[in-house]
Write a protein that binds this DNA or RNA. Structure first.
Lengths: 144, 144
DNA sequence: CTTGACCGTTAGGTAACCTAACTATTAGAC
DNA sequence: GTCTAATAGTTAGGTTACCTAACGGTCAAG
């Protein structure tokens, strides 16, 4: 497999990613939860996390994670729970309100996207399904 | 094909896109050209464009496109050329310096990505290649 | 019990978007 | 032909989500 081929692939890959991001952002611009807030909440939906882990998982710095959490906490969607084994650590977890808001936002947005999926052929749909794990792996390979 | 299945697909698709965004952004954080600047320049590399088309193609509003162009023009990477058929219109085109900067940035960044592609199996690589046109179509389906 | 590492917050700054309001030009109606 | 409505782009002002640097509190190891 030639390097030049991969270079071109990288170019188109980049380009469709950029487009896809704007698309997702415009779907998320419905005034409920921003894209960043949603992804933080989605992370917390799986399990409570300390600030530093939120940052690491989201690919952002700790102060940015603090900022996100503060915003969400002010809105009552998450709560800070001081760890009782290490008093430096703050665990962040979804509140009931947070889970409801997240579920509602996810449902509506994923519905919009699922509709678009239906405009694809079965073959095209399949190709996206197959690519997801590969892209996941690629993301990891490109992470620090 | 069930809706529920598509809903789940939408969720994972969203998630890997988010991750991919951070990855691309971190590759682009090399101080040369920002991700947004690069994508504007890439668009202009194909052909000169008026401001409103830059905005439309990039999925942003006209004032944001003006801002981007102003920034690039200040850096000497693009130039505004007033249309001589319609004096309201401004055509924006790459300067030589702009083309050089773009080529250099693209090469280095795509090289980084191409390296990561090589950590994938031939099968995984193929799945990404196949997915690109499908994602492109999906992007269009989700655009306003 | 002190020193160094670690966790999170605060302070201050920037890039990239947005909406609303403006200017200049064009095109269409009468 | 002129007046009006639409269009192209800019300006002004604001927000979000990131960043780095500097700080305070807590833990762990010598």
């Amino acid at each position: 497999m030639s390097n030049i081929e991969n270079l071109e692939l990288a170019g188109s890959y980049r380009e469709i990613l950029r487009q896809a991001l704007y698309v997702v952002r415009s779907i998320d611009a419905d005034g409920e939860l921003s894209t960043a807030q949603t992804s933080t909440l989605n992370m917390l939906a799986a399990a409570p996390q300390r600030i530093s882990l939120i940052a690491r998982n989201a690919g952002i710095r700790v102060p940015s994670a603090t900022e996100q959490v503060t915003k969400l906490a002010t809105a009552g969607l998450v709560e800070r729970v001081p760890s009782n084994t290490d008093f430096r650590v703050v665990e962040v977890r979804l509140t009931t309100k947070g889970r409801q808001a997240l579920d509602a936002a996810n449902l509506r947005r994923n519905k919009t996207m699922a509709q678009a999926f239906e405009s694809l052929s079965a073959h095209e749909l399949e190709s996206i399904k197959l690519a997801i794990p590969a892209i996941e792996k690629l993301n990891e390979a490109l992470s620090p």
